[in-house]
C-alpha cells in the first residue's frame, strides 16, 4: 500500500513538473477520481474525510470560492449513492462505469454549472474535454492499482468468478 501511494505521489509530481500547471492539487480530476474509487472500494469514511480536507485546501490554494470543490465533488456522489442503492452495483465493470459517470459530472458541475451560476470565470470547452479525457485514462489506471491494494482477496476472486 505504501509503495503504491509513493508511486502515485511521484507520478503527480512528474505530471506537475512536466505540465507546469498550478500545483499538485490543481489536478481536480485526479482528486475526483481518487475519491470516487475509494468510495467504490468501500472506503467510504476515508473518501469523505480526504475529499473534504483536500477540496477545502484546493480552494484555498488556488483561490477558488471556498466550498466550490467539495460541492462539485459531492453532488455526483450523492446521486450515484442513490443509484447504487437502487441498482446494487457490484461488478467491476459497473464500478468503473459509475466512477466514470461520477467523475465526469463532478467536472461538469465544477467547470460549467458552477461558472454559470456564480459567474466564476469563463467556460473553456477544450480544457473541460481535455480534463474529462485525462480523468477517463487516469481512472482506469488507478482502478487497476487500487483494486490490487484495497480489494480483499475473496472479493477479487468472487468478481473473477462472475
Amino acid at each position: 500500500m505504501v509503495i503504491q501511494i509513493v508511486l502515485i505521489t511521484i507520478s503527480i509530481v512528474i505530471l506537475e513538473l512536466v505540465s507546469n500547471e498550478i500545483i499538485l492539487l490543481q489536478y481536480f480530476n485526479f482528486l475526483v477520481i481518487l475519491i470516487n474509487l475509494l468510495y467504490w472500494f468501500r472506503r467510504f469514511n476515508i473518501a469523505i474525510i480526504c475529499s473534504f480536507i483536500a477540496g477545502i485546501l484546493l480552494d484555498l490554494i488556488v483561490q477558488n470560492p471556498l466550498g466550490k470543490t467539495t460541492f462539485s465533488l459531492f453532488i455526483p456522489i450523492l446521486v450515484t449513492t442513490l443509484f447504487d442503492n437502487i441498482m446494487q452495483v457490484e461488478s467491476r465493470v459497473n464500478r468503473v462505469a459509475f466512477s466514470l459517470i461520477s467523475a465526469t459530472f463532478a467536472i461538469f458541475i465544477s467547470e460549467v454549472l458552477f461558472k454559470l451560476i456564480f459567474w466564476d470565470g469563463e467556460i473553456v470547452l477544450v480544457a473541460i474535454i481535455k480534463e474529462m479525457l485525462y480523468s477517463g485514462v487516469l481512472l482506469l489506471i488507478l482502478h487497476i492499482l487500487l483494486e490490487r491494494v484495497l480489494m480483499k482477496k475473496e472479493e477479487r476472486s468472487l468478481l473473477r468468478k462472475r
Binding site: F52, T70, F71, T81
Partner: peptide
C-alpha cells in the same frame, strides 16, 4: 447514514460559499 453525511458536507459547502 451515507446520505446524511453527504448532505451535511453539501450544506457545509454551501455555507462556506
Amino acid at each position: 447514514d451515507r446520505m446524511l453525511i453527504i448532505s451535511i458536507v453539501l450544506i457545509v459547502s454551501v455555507l462556506l460559499l
